[in-house]
Write a protein that binds this DNA or RNA. Structure first.
Lengths: 245, 245
DNA sequence: TCCCTTTATTGTCAAGGTGACGATAAGTCG
DNA sequence: CGACTTATCGTCACCTTGACAATAAAGGGA
């Protein structure tokens, strides 16, 4: 820190959350419709200003709860990056700290306590050409979050963050296919997922009721489960690489 | 952003830079000695407060120049993460945005314009048990920066950011060994570095004067060179993994 | 000059991982 | 029961890696 600045400038600090989930085999992002200016009527990432005495991650969790009605979100939450403070809010300088949430599909309040409508939107409908334009610089933040998620799947057990506690290999593969936007060979994926030491363990249970042969249910190994405070361990070694094309 | 907050809280925003280099085959970090409270006399990462109208990365470059006397730093600069705002500065809430600089060895002013002494310190001397204690939460930031650098070497061409424009395979290998703290097999490394398409290209020149056989000089391919604004491309595919032990 | 030391570079080989894809297994549905 | 669907196991050629031998190209000293 500079020793010269007697009274440093102060900035409002906002947290914005890129919440991703896989719904019907399609990657979705959680967005709210803004009911006030600026960008009234536009879709935006959920978020809000950090309060005094609050930590960044606390603020992210609180804003997510306020705007989506979810008190206890399971899944994986990590910091994505910071943006600004200039050129991103017409009201003036605002520093934004973005967080990335990878979570199983959860219901959102159609009208949160902030009176903003929240809902899941397919990521492709936002990022495609001629997609819906987001407020602020949220499209860039979403792109950064998507790329972070894509690369993290390669070497970390984070794909399981999109699933519940127990899941089948096919469900896990559907996560990879939805996030990467690529088809994967079911047999090779099964070999890699079940063959990686310290990644998955069988629960002994199987699915029922669906069409086709029942699938075995797996859960993450204790070693692969994200610990509070610790980053997700690099369990997939060698990594599960994205196909080139 | 929350629609409810009419006058959001404002925080001072500091940028801190984890500047790493390889010097005499040892990883060093750039630190300054604080001459004022708090943490007077302690070593700290160079950094300072963001000024109004300034971007985060601009502030990082400016503070680095002010405290180390380097106007144009070559190498790779990327955002590392944000810390706080609570519990990291005894003067009160301060949000810190950390940046990571991977650079060739450059001289630092022994007394910068901020009158803080800057110098290179072996990373191990800071992070070892009984190492020198840094000011603020800078030890955690340094650890995060080190881990980021270590993992980035695996799949990106960023090791070359520690070298000059042209370098030998052995110099590049020395970077990996210094950052990872592990010995690598010179022959297998040579095969991987020269055999990866789109990574290195020969300059045709060779080193001279040293003991032993002269080494060929290489440079990064245009595709592997970091573009302004773009992240470092994932050129090493499959990656060059750290040995397990 | 010739040998020794040092560093760079090229090969070799076995083991393991991956992509492509055939073959079975175990359910549901008609 | 037979068709269909999904899950799981096997096979095989190819590629990459780790371990390590061998060769190349300098400088230094006897």
């Amino acid at each position: 820190m500079s020793s010269r600045d007697h009274s440093p400038a102060r900035f409002p600090v906002a947290v914005d959350v890129v919440a991703l989930t896989v719904r019907d085999d399609v990657l979705h992002v959680l967005l709210v419709t803004r009911l006030i200016e600026p960008f009234r009527g536009r879709l935006a990432l959920p978020g809000g200003f950090v309060l005094p005495g609050e930590d960044l991650q606390e603020a992210a969790v609180r804003e997510l709860a306020e705007e989506t009605g979810v008190e206890k979100v399971s899944g994986h939450l990590e910091q994505l990056g910071s943006y600004g403070p200039g050129g991103r809010d017409p009201r003036g300088d605002v520093l934004a700290v973005a967080y990335l949430l990878l979570a199983p599909d959860f219901p959102v309040l159609s009208a949160g306590s902030d009176a903003e409508k929240a809902g899941w939107y397919p990521v492709s409908s936002i990022l495609d050409d001629h997609g819906i334009r987001l407020a602020f610089d949220h499209e860039k933040i979403l792109r950064d979050g998507l790329e972070r998620a894509r690369s993290k799947l390669e070497y970390s057990p984070l794909a399981a963050a999109f699933c519940g506690e127990e899941f089948t290999i096919a469900q896990l593969r559907a996560v990879y296919e939805a996030v990467w936007g690529l088809p994967l060979d079911a047999r090779n994926f099964h070999r890699k997922a079940t063959g990686t030491p310290g990644f998955l363990e069988e629960t002994g249970k199987v699915t029922a009721g669906d069409t086709g042969r029942p699938a075995a249910l797996y859960r993450l190994t204790a070693a692969a489960r994200p610990e509070p405070g610790h980053p997700a361990r690099a369990v997939l070694n060698p990594p599960l690489m994205r196909p080139v094309s």
